[in-house]
Design a protein around this nucleic acid. Sequence first.
DNA 1: TCTCCTCGAGATCT
DNA 2: CTCGAGGAGA
Length: 338
Amino acid sequence: MPFGIAINKDGSIEFGNIKAPIRNKGKNLIELPKDYIVIDIETTGLDQIFDDIIEIAAIKVKDGEIIDSFESLVKPSFNSYYCDSEGNKKACYVDDFIIQLTGITNEMLSNAPYPKDILPKFVDFIEDSILLGHNINFDVNFLYDSLMSKLDYRLSNDFVDLMRLSRKIYPAFENHKLATVARNLNIDTSNSHRALPDCETTHKCYSVLCNYVHKNDIDVESLWSNSNKKYYNLQNLESDATKHNPEHLFYDRYCTFTGKLEKLDRKVAAQLVTNIGGHCLNNVTKQTNYLILGNMDYVSNIKEGKSNKLKKAEQLILNGQDLQILSENVFYDLILEA
DNA sequence: TCTCCTCGAGATCT
DNA sequence: CTCGAGGAGA
């Protein structure tokens, strides 16, 4: 159960179950637009509820070329004070970690424009363009909440996430942080963690990614399409017939799995069965000789601890079918010794 | 076979 | 937030 403390607009404090704010955002697109607005924000921290935006930047791109940009600090709310070198009491907006990370200081923020003054300019700049960013849900969520509370404006632009694209197009990268993606694509990232330079980095990475996709004729949408997904089919696994073991209990017999195996991936287990000359089935059928029982604890739609496969198997046994139910451990004893 | 649902695991943003 | 695994059901 989520638990937290929320501060309402009227200043009252609420304890208890805090639900994530419901945001009616634009769509997360799977496509590579040529016209878009790159966005990036810096904030006082990672928390969507308690932290504030301190800097916004955007770059307008048409047909792959930068044609305009936008950049501004934003004054966040504050709840503590510090004393400067002359002993004057000053509002504290950001902690040392953020100052270190971004280079944005309390002095800079004390002179920054208020959200209600700068956000309308940002809204005018992005119009209804597609937005591009790295892990852009982070930025869109902050902007959505800020625009809603300060301007009563709903951010409905569709958006494209560079990180999501990178994970599919470059699965071999060690991780998909912006800095890592940039380094792997030979893109310089000096002056990072300021909003505008990070927009530029994102734009460069995206350009390289687009070129790579076009050069290699990659059908981006098909990377996500269901038709491309291989359904769990254990029935036609290949095996080397010369390595079959006619002595084995599973030889020329039919196995079905239910639940999640603790020690082996189901497909790997099915391959082991196939290797010794057994067969696997996706469902309990009249052919099934062994039902191997995995762990049902993780499975959400199971009632009374029995899957439909298990119930069906029990019924078939009552009808006299040559079918045995094996626990996962018994299965390992049988298959791993082979 | 295929579509829909749910859950858990893992990762990134400042 | 995204993705994949797995069951249910058409």
